[in-house]
Amino acid sequence: MKRLLIIGIGAGDPDHLTLQAVKAIAATDMFIIVDKGEVKQELVQLRQDLIHEHGRRPYRIAEARDPERDRSAAAYVEAVDDWRARRAVACEALIQELGDDETGAFLVWGDPGVYDSTLAVVEEILRRGNVTFDYEVIPGISSVAALTARHRIGLTRVGRPVHLTTGRRLAEQGATADDMVVMLDAHCSFAALPDHHVYWGAYLGTPDEILVSGPVAEVGDRIRELRAEARERKGWIMDTYLLRRQEGTLSG
């Protein structure tokens, strides 16, 4: 049977690769890379560099163009489902090129189980029933782990839950826990919570890494400025932050 490996490659630093990931890359016959366009070409380049360093020849690289996604749609969940379905079609065609005794692999930014669509796309391909395969997930260092390590903080506090959410949800619901990890917040929704402390990071693990921490009331404007400047300069940004209610205002 065809075999797929979903390999977490870390948040951006080539040294984030685990030994398990290195072995998985070496065991791969065909790497499937989803090309997100010229603006994010450096994300493709990092994957190609890792393949070149750790892959065992002869291997093949197959590229699928990422479908356009409507990020302004009012029906957000439906828009994401549609995008994933179209991505599944593109990737399915490449998986069909695998021989029955071959192994294919997706190199996934960060960890495949944290804020990534690859697992959902793979399950969609299996549901479609046009190709069968077995697959294995190789965990990676997530942007959340990289963020807390770079800021030298723990993710959790005694007796306190951590809520993983999005900028969209934070804007809609406000603070739902004393500690919240927020992914890809284009609108800097933390600004509405000046009594919190923020640990923010962009391009974690890369030469362009940016780190800021402090009370939102003091560093919020700086983060907004840095984020806007970086996105304008590079054409894209990936950022993550931990929003923590300060000790004197803990709820409960």
Rank of each mutant, 00 (worst) to 15 (best):
L5A: 12
I6F: 02
L17W: 05
A21S: 06
A21D: 01
T28G: 02
D35N: 15
V39S: 09
V44H: 06
V44C: 14
Q45S: 13
Q45G: 12
L50Q: 03
G55F: 10
G55D: 01
G55K: 01
R57N: 11
R60T: 02
A62F: 11
D66M: 11
D66I: 06
E68R: 07
E68S: 08
R71V: 12
R71L: 15
S72L: 14
S72D: 11
A75N: 12
A75Q: 11
V77C: 03
V77P: 10
V80A: 08
D82G: 02
W83P: 02
A88H: 04
A88M: 14
A88G: 05
A90M: 12
L94Y: 05
L94H: 07
Q96P: 03
E97H: 05
E102A: 01
A105R: 06
W109G: 01
G113C: 07
Y115C: 03
D116H: 15
S117E: 05
L119K: 06
A120T: 05
V121I: 15
L126P: 11
R127K: 06
R128Y: 10
R128N: 13
T132A: 15
D134A: 14
I138Y: 06
P139G: 07
G140A: 13
G140Y: 11
I141P: 04
A145D: 10
A146I: 03
A146T: 05
A146K: 05
A149E: 08
R150Q: 14
H151S: 00
R152G: 06
R152D: 13
L155K: 02
G159K: 04
R160Y: 12
P161F: 14
R168K: 07
A171N: 09
E172P: 07
Q173H: 15
G174F: 14
V182K: 00
V182D: 00
L184T: 04
L184E: 04
C188R: 06
F190R: 09
F190G: 08
L193I: 13
P194C: 08
V198C: 11
Y203A: 11
G205H: 08
G205Q: 14
I210D: 02
L211P: 04
V212T: 06
S213M: 13
G220L: 08
R222L: 12
I223W: 08
E225I: 13
L226Q: 10
A228Y: 05
A228E: 11
E229K: 13
G252V: 02
